[in-house]
């Protein structure tokens, strides 16, 4: 057994899993505060990556400026998307709203293909060294950055929801919208805010992944991959999303390892998380940390 490769894959899995966790957190955030299962989550990554790519290539901005501009753009984009497309859907049956997010997903994928073409583009080089050696492990510099960013985002989420006025307002809205309104909280504002945060944070993950593996439509698949992660963790638990993301990240890499070494079935990397999804839905449909009474779709 090739232990060196296995450790390498597990570390990679943890790093990517942390990113799944970040995207999963956004998914949970939107679900908790607006009760919408957002199937267009992956497109946030895709749009963010393309916008950042365009800013760096066409406007030749320095990476940090392009990155910050992308985040600002995505914040506005998320808020506008909520206000224009999803606000009129408030009060409609949940299934209709979900269909709208599926429609948005298809629309934005096509739009990105139309604007940027179908072929994958490599991201401009951001770091001098592509990868560094830590304890004999080979780690991409971008992944190192992503780990730092992911941890910062997680701490920021914690502080935001624990101490800021708006974070508390979002938790109140998630708990009971009528109570929130009776306290003077504008529920519409909270909805827009949660979509803005989800779009911004997801786009960050999109840019990081694009830095390693290039920008292409396949980025939106992360949005689907996050499903097993959040369902494993429980659809309404932020902690669950992080734990679920880490588990799925490691799992797909380990599955890949055993497949390439022994099984030779092929493509286990992409498939394994969904086997887990099936098993969880069978035996523990509310996930590891989820509340028991949430609606299943």
């Amino acid at each position: 057994m090739n232990f060196e490769l296995l450790t390498q894959l597990i570390v990679n899995g943890l790093i990517v899993g942390l990113l799944y966790g970040v995207v999963g957190m956004c998914f949970v955030l939107v679900y908790k505060s607006t009760q919408i299962v957002n199937f267009a989550q992956g497109e946030f990554l895709l749009i963010g990556a393309w916008v950042c790519w365009a800013l760096l290539i066409y406007l030749e901005l320095p990476f940090i400026v392009g990155f910050l501009l992308t985040m600002a753009f995505m914040a506005v984009f998320g808020v506008m998307l909520q206000m224009i497309v999803l606000r009129p859907m408030i009060g409609e049956p949940i299934i209709s709203v979900i269909m709208v997010t599926i429609g948005l997903s298809i629309f934005f994928q096509a739009l990105m293909k139309w604007i940027f073409g179908v072929s994958a583009q490599s991201f401009p080089k951001v770091f001098e060294t592509e990868s560094i050696q830590i304890l004999g492990l080979h780690i991409e510099t971008a992944y190192l950055m992503s780990t730092v960013i992911a941890l910062i985002i997680m701490v920021a989420f914690y502080l935001f929801f624990k101490h800021s006025k708006y974070g508390l307002a979002m938790r109140a809205t998630a708990f009971d919208q009528q109570i929130a309104q009776s306290l003077g909280i504008s529920v519409k504002q909270v909805f827009a805010m949660s979509w803005g945060i989800a779009a911004t944070v997801s786009a960050t993950a999109g840019v990081v992944i694009a830095m390693v593996s290039g920008v292409s439509n396949s980025l939106s698949i992360i949005g689907i991959k996050v499903f097993p992660a959040v369902i494993l963790g429980g659809l309404d638990s932020i902690i669950g999303a992080i734990v679920g993301g880490l588990i799925i990240g490691v799992l797909e890499n380990v599955a890949e390892f055993f497949d390439s070494q022994y099984l030779h079935v092929g493509n286990m990397y992409d498939i394994a998380p969904f086997y887990v999804l099936l098993i969880i839905l069978w035996f523990k449909p509310y996930g590891l940390f989820g509340t028991k009474d949430i609606e299943r779709i």
Binding site: L168, F175, S182, L183
Partner: peptide
């Protein structure tokens, strides 16, 4: 109708929203 999954202090802070 207090917010049960928050502490009393957080509930009070929300009153001042």
């Amino acid at each position: 109708r207090i917010i049960e999954d928050m502490t009393s202090l957080e509930n009070l802070k929300l009153g001042a929203y």
